[in-house]
């Protein structure tokens, strides 16, 4: 499903070259729940971004369903990000001037085929316990609620792969558990999940556990 072949991502920080991901080789199979742990700044987010074409590798290849993403056009890559991948960001990623429901429906705006995204959005929000907040704005929500809205948005186009970047950061223990249960449920329902986190404890939710240290990936 996702294959990294010696993929590296380097970028310039002042005059220094930072090797955020260094020769990562990895295969994510269908229905995997892969957890990648590592300290802050170890390159986890960059790795996740490489997997869904949010950035292109400096070296090596990233294959998505056996297609090298470097060869895809912007339009094709955008379609993949829209239809095949759901991305849960680490930081608050909601558009502040859109309501909760509109934030959830946002990916549908870029979909070529328009489904009944309103119904789907409402259904997801109900499932995530946010049915009473559909007309609220992000600033009126708690951090945990914002995370759940971001999860709903990642799932609205029924993606094959869900990539979650520190989905439980800045959450209290109870909310963390709730969010992890939702992600586990999503995995059970058929999606492939790749989650990166600094918390080793959350590794127990996954079927595979990898570790990242200073841009180097290793199987735990």
């Amino acid at each position: 499903m996702i294959e990294l072949q010696n993929a590296s991502k380097h970028y310039l920080l002042g005059k220094n070259v930072v090797k955020a991901v260094n020769s990562a080789t990895l295969t994510v199979n269908r229905k995997d729940f892969m957890v990648i742990t590592g300290r802050s700044g170890s390159g986890k987010t960059t790795l996740l971004s490489l997997m869904c074409g949010l950035t292109k590798p400096t070296l090596g290849r990233v294959l998505l369903n056996h297609v090298d993403i470097s060869t895809l056009s912007d339009s094709d890559l955008s379609t993949i990000r829209n239809r095949k991948v759901g991305f849960i960001f680490q930081f608050p990623s909601l558009i502040p001037f859109l309501t909760v429901l509109d934030n959830v429906r946002l990916p549908s705006a870029f979909a070529e085929t328009k489904n009944d995204d309103r119904e789907r959005g409402e259904e997801l929000l109900e499932r995530l316990g946010l049915d009473e907040r559909i007309n609220s704005y992000p600033s009126q929500l708690s951090m945990g609620e914002q995370k759940r809205v971001a999860i709903a948005r990642a799932l609205v186009n029924e993606p094959d792969i869900v990539l979650a970047d520190e989905p439980t950061s800045e959450l209290d223990e109870t909310t963390e558990k709730e969010v992890m249960e939702i992600i586990s449920e999503v995995h059970k329902e058929s999606a492939t999940v790749v989650m990166v986190t600094h918390s080793s404890e959350l590794a127990r939710y996954g079927s595979r556990h990898l570790r990242m240290v200073r841009g180097i990936l290793s199987e735990k």
């Binding site: 949010l54 912007d74 339009s75 955008s78 990000r81 829209n82 239809r83 991305f87 946002l106």
Partner: peptide, 15 residues
């Protein structure tokens, strides 16, 4: 960041 988010959820460069 907002533009990056829009691109992440499927907005093309042209859009």
């Amino acid at each position: 960041r907002e533009i990056g988010l829009l691109r992440a959820v499927g907005a093309t460069r042209r859009w």
